[in-house]
């Protein structure tokens, strides 16, 4: 079943059109990679799906589980299962990571009409997940992302993904700024979350990440459009030939 349907999407930022009619369909259980040179509109697409203010959708639509996503507030989208792992996770001084996780999780559950987690259940869950991601407990006591290394920030994103159990995960440049070891830990965390009911959109500039998170489909973006789609081999092809062929298109 189609989980996410982006149809002929046109988006402007400050009067300038960035996405010029983008179409993409992601079914449950699938992992899609979106590749493309810098400035091709990958992050813009992820922000529009998540509902970040400042983007004007001038045409097209986005359906999520058949519902009009663009009609929903961003927090409502989160509660419905849209998760965006940010390329640059922000720091929130003075707010302990543990407090943040709990506040967010309970906000989502409340929006869905579910009961809040009890303290022991919540702690148990956080401990399990953070252990598998190699996140020490004292990191959770620190302010959200404050003084975290690049790898720790990305692991914190994956931790949240695991806790919130979204049905759509969008990972924007998860590999940026990570060394191989950090990348492997984060990618293992993501792979553990692959499931038949959950889809992922993995945005990356480099093919490297796709050695660790192997996609079912690969799309190439250039200048605000998907210019080519294919199976996972397309990524290797790109690695060899580069993006220049699409730049001229």
């Amino acid at each position: 079943m189609a989980l996410l349907e982006v149809k002929d999407l046109k988006v402007r930022v400050e009067e300038r059109e960035i996405l010029h009619g983008l179409t993409l369909t992601v079914n449950e259980g699938e992992v899609h990679a979106i590749m493309g040179p810098n400035g091709s509109g990958k992050s813009t697409l992820s922000h529009v799906i998540a509902g970040k203010p400042g983007y004007e959708v001038t045409d097209g639509q986005i359906l999520f589980k058949g519902e009009d996503l663009l009609e929903m507030d961003p927090d409502e989208r989160a509660a419905k299962g849209v998760f965006l792992a940010f390329q640059y996770p922000v720091e929130i001084p003075g707010v302990a990571t543990m407090t943040f996780l709990r506040t967010a999780l309970n906000a989502q559950r409340k929006a869905r009409g579910e009961s809040e987690y009890s303290t022991p259940d919540f702690l148990k869950k956080v401990r399990e997940v953070s252990k598998s991601l190699n996140i020490p407990q004292d990191m959770l006591k620190r302010g959200v992302n404050v003084g975290f290394s690049g790898g720790e920030k990305k692991r914190n994103e994956v931790l949240q993904m695991a806790l919130f159990e979204p049905s759509l995960c969008i990972l924007d440049e998860m590999d940026s700024g990570l060394d191989i070891d950090a990348l492997r830990i984060a990618a293992d965390g993501v792979n553990a979350l692959r499931s038949p009911g959950r889809a992922m959109v993995v945005i990356t500039h480099y093919q490297r990440l796709l050695n660790y998170i192997v996609p079912d489909f690969v799309h190439v973006m250039s200048r605000g459009r998907v210019v080519k789609s294919g199976a996972k081999d397309l990524a290797l092809e790109l690695e060899a030939s580069g993006y220049t062929q699409f730049e001229d298109a």
Partner: peptide, 29 residues
């Protein structure tokens, strides 16, 4: 910060909750 607020909202907090959380962090000391 616009980006900090959006980060919180993307994780399910309402606009008001996000502002409250960020400000409470700011005054924690």
């Amino acid at each position: 910060s616009e980006d900090v607020l959006f980060y919180c909202i993307q994780r399910g907090l309402s606009q008001e909750e996000a502002v409250g959380l960020v400000v409470n962090g700011f005054v924690k000391d």
